Simulated assay, not measured.
Amino acid sequence: MKTLNLIEVYIYEVTKRLPVKSRDDIALELRSTIEDMLPENYSEVDVKDALTKLGNPAVLAASYHDKPIYLIGPNLYDNYILTMKRVIPWAILISIFIHIFENIVFFSGKEAILSVAINTIGILIGNVINVLIQVFFWITIVFAVVERVGISNPDLPHNKKCKKWTPEDLKNAEIIPKKKAISKADVVFSFIWTAIWAIAYFNADHLVGIYRSMDGNGNGLQFVMPIFNQDTLLSYWPIVLIFIVLELALIVYKWNAAQWTMKLVIVNAIIHVLSVIAFIVIASNPHLLNDAIIPHTAELLETTSSTVANSLDWIWRLIVATFVVTTLFEIFDSYRKARIR
């Protein structure tokens, strides 16, 4: 690693733990401090000595916070935040899936799925809030106890076994530009979106269809008929299941990579191009729509079945075209991000 890059990586490791609004100013200040510590014709050894004096980037970053961290000290605070970031998304996802699974298993079929879904959303929001409170409380308690019993004290045997931070550790660090990074929020959204369309596919005859008010006042919804022919949809289930597995594997890959790379772009492009082809094949099946949907819609709109059929055909083509365009744009955008140095 070049000497200049060693300094930049150290500054990055400090500033990435700070609020965005103060990163640039602190980076300038820290760079100036490091330069003042170095001789005129400095070497890599001089840089490492200076960085060693400054110490662990996590501890130094904690000293820049406007307010002192009393509950969790600087030696543990960075690990505390990292633990929160790693545990909270998975705790939320597990909570959501448990609740959805319970609703599917205990669904009686007497109430419209859309109504059940609306009620489920309200309950899910409450569950998510409860999970956030529980995770925050218990992780904070654990770290506070660790702090108070002195495990963060470097003189304890536990910490004597731990490797002390040195500038050599920076060689394993990597500066990830903000525009190139894959946020955890994007990964979680991809996971939720995959779960939504997978559930919709296998339950289309109960979920995707025409609804009407049960009492005419908008209080409660009654499922009238499905839009799609479920038997036709399920004839493609092996293909769909393969893509569900591929999407989940891609999500795990993105989570671990944390940034767009050319290898990830290629894998992402292959999976999404194949999914577009599969989507077009399924959408082109003439038996995909429920046979009763066209006459029913024509009766509701007081028009002819041929007019409804032509309109649905154009709408379906628009949906397919939109799916193709958005997929191609997503692939191009990921390629553009991967090229950022």
Score class of each variant (00 low, 15 high):
V149H: 07
N219F: 11
F191R: 04
A144I: 09
G220F: 08
H158W: 10
F143L: 05
F189W: 13
P177D: 05
V187E: 05
R212F: 05
S190I: 06
P177M: 04
F143G: 11
H158I: 15
V149L: 15
D155V: 11
G216Y: 00
V149N: 10
I210V: 07
H206E: 13
V188R: 02
A173C: 09
P226Y: 01
F143Y: 14
Q230D: 14
G218L: 03
K180E: 13
W165F: 06
L170I: 01
K164V: 10
V208Y: 00
P226F: 01
W193P: 00
A200Q: 14
A144P: 08
V188M: 12
V188Q: 10
L170E: 02
I175T: 10
K164G: 01
Q222L: 03
V208E: 00
P154H: 05
V149Y: 08
Q222N: 04
D155C: 04
M225S: 12
P157E: 03
W165A: 01
I227S: 06
N172Y: 09
A185H: 12
F191T: 08
H206A: 05
A185W: 13
Q134E: 08
Y211G: 00
A181H: 11
M214G: 09
F143V: 13
D186F: 10
M225L: 11
K160A: 01
L170K: 00
N219W: 07
P157H: 00
N229R: 09
K171S: 06
F223C: 02
A181D: 06
V187H: 07
K184V: 15
F143Q: 09
K161V: 14
A198L: 08
D215S: 05
A181M: 12
L207I: 15
A200S: 13
Q222Y: 02
K160C: 06
V149Q: 09
I151E: 08
D186W: 13
